[in-house]
C-alpha cells in the first residue's frame, strides 16, 4: 500500500520541503504538494502535514491568515472525518487558529527567537503519532520559533492532561509554555500540533547538521499505523 501524505504550502511556509523529504524518506512514497489556494485536497489521504514557516508574514497573528485560507476548510473537513493531521511550528499555530486544537501560541516569554535543539519528554505513546516512542523517554528535537509559548486556561490545561492529550513536554522550560507543553493532541488523538521540528531530526547524527534522528519515530509511528490498519 502506498502512503499518501499531503504537505500544504502557504505563502511564507519554509519547512514544506523538509517535511516532504522526511515523509518520503520514511514512507518511500513522494508527498503530494498542495497549495493554500486549492479548495480541495487529494483523495484518500493518510496524513495531512502543515509545515513550519511564517505563513502570510505572520500578519495579524501567527497562523491566523492561513487558518482562513481555502485549503484549511478542506483540512478541517478532512480532520472531522478522522484523517490524521500533523502541524509543526507554524503548522501548530495554524491548527490552534483554526480551532482544530485548543489554546494559542503566544510570543516567547523571553521575547527572543529560539533556535536550538531541545530535550523533550514523551508523555503519550498511545497516539497515532507517538506509538514508536517509550513513555517518559527523553528525545532531542530542534525548535526554531518566536511564538511558541503555549497558552490555555487552567481548565483546558487540566482537561488536556487528564485526557492524556499532552504528547510532548519540554524537559526544561524553553519559551514560557504553560506546564512546559510542546505538543498537544486533539480529543480523538488524530490531530497533533507541536512546536519542535521532527522533520529536522530524521538523519543519523553523523550526517545531520542539527544532530539526531529522534524525529524519525514520529513519522514511523504514523506509517506503521497505516500499514497495520
Amino acid at each position: 500500500m502506498t502512503f499518501r501524505a499531503a504537505v500544504i504550502t502557504f505563502p511564507g511556509s519554509n519547512c514544506d520541503r523538509d517535511m516532504a523529504v522526511a515523509l518520503e524518506q520514511i514512507s518511500g512514497a513522494p508527498a503530494i504538494r498542495v497549495w493554500h489556494g486549492d479548495a480541495e485536497l487529494p483523495e484518500r489521504l493518510d496524513l495531512i502535514a502543515l509545515p513550519g514557516g511564517f505563513s502570510y508574514g505572520d500578519y495579524l497573528r501567527s497562523g491566523a491568515m492561513a487558518a482562513t485560507s481555502p485549503i484549511m476548510r478542506a483540512v478541517i473537513a478532512a480532520a472531522s472525518r478522522g484523517v490524521p493531521v500533523l502541524g509543526v511550528c507554524n503548522g501548530f499555530q495554524v491548527l490552534t487558529e483554526a480551532r482544530l486544537l485548543p489554546g494559542a501560541l503566544l510570543r516567547n516569554a523571553g521575547q527572543r527567537f529560539i533556535c536550538r535543539s531541545v530535550a523533550l519528554t514523551v508523555e503519550n505513546t498511545d497516539s497515532l503519532f507517538t506509538s514508536a516512542y517509550v513513555r517518559g523517554e527523553q528525545i532531542r528535537i530542534p525548535v526554531a520559533h518566536h511564538d511558541g509559548n503555549y497558552f490555555a486556561d487552567a481548565e483546558t490545561l487540566d482537561r488536556l492532561e487528564g485526557e492524556g492529550r499532552v504528547a510532548f513536554r519540554y524537559a526544561e522550560p524553553c519559551n514560557g509554555s504553560a506546564r512546559n507543553i510542546a505538543g498537544v493532541l486533539s480529543a480523538n488523538g488524530r490531530v497533533l500540533g507541536m512546536m519542535p521540528h521532527p522533520e529536522r531530526a530524521i538523519e543519523p547524527a553523523a550526517v545531520s547538521a542539527l544532530g539526531g534522528s529522534d524525529g524519525r519515530r514520529l513519522f514511523e509511528s504514523v506509517f506503521a499505523a497505516l500499514a497495520s490498519a
Partner: peptide, 9 residues
C-alpha cells in the same frame, strides 16, 4: 470572533 481577535487570548 472569527478573525480580528483570538478569543482564547
Amino acid at each position: 470572533e472569527k478573525l480580528l481577535a483570538n478569543t482564547v487570548i
